[in-house]
Design a binder for these strands. Structure first.
Length: 514
RNA sequence: GUCAGAGUAGCUCAGCUGGUUAGAGCACAGGAUUCAUAACCCUGAGGUCGGGAGUUCAAGUCUCCCCUCUGACACCA
């Protein structure tokens, strides 16, 4: 089964921020999970590079728009590489292939009779790239978001006839599974119920955009262009950027993961555009929440932005991924609190999971010739930890399939806690001081090592690096094409060598603010 | 303004169709232990469940009013 997932194509107005990193990490976890369950995944991300805002940002830096885009796009690409994001495609909307695809798509929409020209007048905010509802006789209106003066525009633009898709879009957004999380579905429904109006898809006097083929001086509105980037990316498999090939390449997308702010574009405009072009709509759109920091909105004006590069350098990918995926219900807004971040990483990863591995491996090595201890039937699949592990696997698989990263993480953690508890209950260190208990101790340690191995395997989609380190220390390795089978109890061979343990996860000891 | 959602321990949140002494994690305090990354394990303290009224044998859970916060309300990465 092809599984196609996308992040938004990030707008290259500025360097990457934590929000885009968050989305991308979540998608990475999902992509990894789907690959591990045997699906043919195409994980798409990229950048959206057109529009007047970029044009002006570049001007302000005395750069050409293309140079600006090249530079910012590179920082994105580089950042994802450093985070170990398992992306399959990185698309740029300034790619020549993209232009060809946009032209073809536009042709189809036009053939459907969904492109009409109309006059658009009103106050326009360049920051928002949109017309505002301020009355035409307003004096010097400002954009409430950007606090900048609005510009009066009187333009002949091309419009997409969204209004024709009223009932089809209603049916779509009423579907149970299309918009996730469900809490956001009603908002979109209400919006659609108010009646859909046509929206403009071209701009005049914006040179930094893709030219509309049959209209001199018009460029495509950034959103029309940007959404099509998903298709360009999917077709970027070495073949031609031809819409007819889409379905063979994995379209429709299984899921678009986006921030809640752009839900409407993805849940309403985008499907209508696809319908107009005779293409299937995506299976699902997931609008996740935003991150605040210590309870406050992050922003340049407050000077409290968390830089993803700083975070990566000072804390490492495992720590940040764990905090974002394990502590924030995916879909809800989340708050980044430094103290909590440190507490969770240290408690969960270093103390609970890391130390579990360390203490168990140490004991096994000390008393069983640096190897996985022998075991009897008592450490087979009806061992309490084996039962717990099986339940954990079921729960994690279920959670991950529904983007429940938090509950998946909690379930994994709970298995590690159970394993630690089992050690304390059976106290191998004191039983080894009594004669004739080696067999029982061997069984106990084997079971705990097995539980630890399963913890390590289950972490693979969430924290791939830590997962590797855990498994390596057990003399084990992830088999990417056999993960589900590896998750069954009994994967460790008694007698297999156990390497000298070293802490797999260092505690965070942050000095000062991030 | 209209609509939607939320206000539960210091913090982040669970609490399904109303039913025994309101739960978890973190933080905090005490205990136990030594295999281990001063880790792990156990116990404890901590809440007038935003405020008020009502329905009911019984309400965090239903109804009404009020307060506060968040989001949507057309083209904001």
């Amino acid at each position: 089964m092809p599984y196609t997932l996308t992040t938004p194509l990030y707008y290259v107005n500025d360097r990457p921020h934590l929000g885009s990193t968050y989305t991308t990490i979540a998608c990475d976890a999902l992509a990894r999970y789907r690959r591990l369950t045997g699906e043919a995944v195409t994980f798409i991300t990229g950048v959206d590079e057109h529009g007047q805002k970029i044009q002006r940002t570049a001007e302000a830096k005395q750069q050409s728009p293309q140079d600006h885009c090249d530079a910012i796009s590179d920082t994105y690409r580089e950042l994802w590489k450093r985070w170990g994001i398992s992306l399959d495609r990185f698309v740029r909307t300034t790619d020549k292939r993209h232009l060809r695809l946009v032209e073809q798509f536009y042709g189809r929409v036009k053939d459907s009779g969904d492109v009409v020209s109309g006059r658009q007048t009103g106050w326009y905010c360049v920051g928002c790239e949109e017309f505002k509802d301020d009355p035409s006789d307003a004096v010097a209106p400002e954009c409430s978001i950007h606090r900048k003066p609005l510009e009066w525009r009187d333009e002949e633009n091309l419009f997409f006839r969204l209004s024709r898709y009223q009932t089809q879009i209603e049916d779509l957004v009423n579907r149970e599974d299309f918009i996730q999380p469900t809490s956001r579905r009603q908002e979109v429904r209400n919006f659609v119920a108010q009646g859909l109006r046509d929206f403009s898809i071209s701009r005049v006097n914006v040179s930094w955009g893709l030219p509309v083929p049959d209209h001199q001086g018009h460029t495509f509105y950034v959103w029309f262009d940007a959404l099509l980037g998903y298709l360009t990316a999917l077709l970027d498999d070495g073949g031609e950027p031809d819409l007819d090939r889409l379905e063979a390449c994995g379209w429709p997308a299984s899921i678009h993961v986006i921030g809640k702010d752009i839900l409407r574009f993805h849940a309403v405009y985008w499907p209508a555009m696809l319908m107009s072009a005779g293409l299937p709509v995506p299976d699902q759109v997931f609008g996740h929440g935003f991150l605040t920091r210590e309870g406050q909105k992050m922003g340049k004006s407050l000077g409290n932005v968390l830089n993803p590069e700083t975070l990566l350098e000072r804390c490492g990918t495992d720590a940040v991924r764990w905090y974002l995926l394990r502590d924030i219900q995916f879909g809800d807004d989340g708050d980044f609190q430094q103290q909590r971040f440190v507490d969770l990483v240290n408690n969960d990863l270093a103390n609970t999971i890391g130390n579990l591995l360390n203490r168990t491996s140490s004991m096994a090595r000390k008393w069983f010739a640096e190897a996985v201890p022998p075991h009897t039937a008592a450490a087979e699949t009806d061992h309490p930890l084996a039962l717990a592990a099986a339940a954990t696997v079921t729960s994690v698989v279920e959670s991950m399939a529904g983007l429940g990263f938090k509950s998946a993480s909690e379930a994994i953690l709970q298995l590690a806690i159970s394993a630690n508890g089992h050690l304390n209950d059976t106290a191998p260190w004191s039983r080894m001081k009594q004669p004739g208990q080696e067999v029982e101790v061997g069984d106990d340690l084997y079971a705990v090592l097995e539980a630890t191995r399963i913890v390590g395997l289950l972490l693979a989609p969430l924290l791939p690096d830590l997962s590797d380190r855990i498994l390596a220390q057990l003399g084990h390795a992830l088999k990417e094409d056999d993960w589900l089978a590896q998750l069954s109890w009994g994967g460790l061979a008694s007698g297999a060598h156990l390497p000298q343990p070293t802490p797999v996860m260092q505690r965070l000891e942050l000095e000062g603010e991030l």
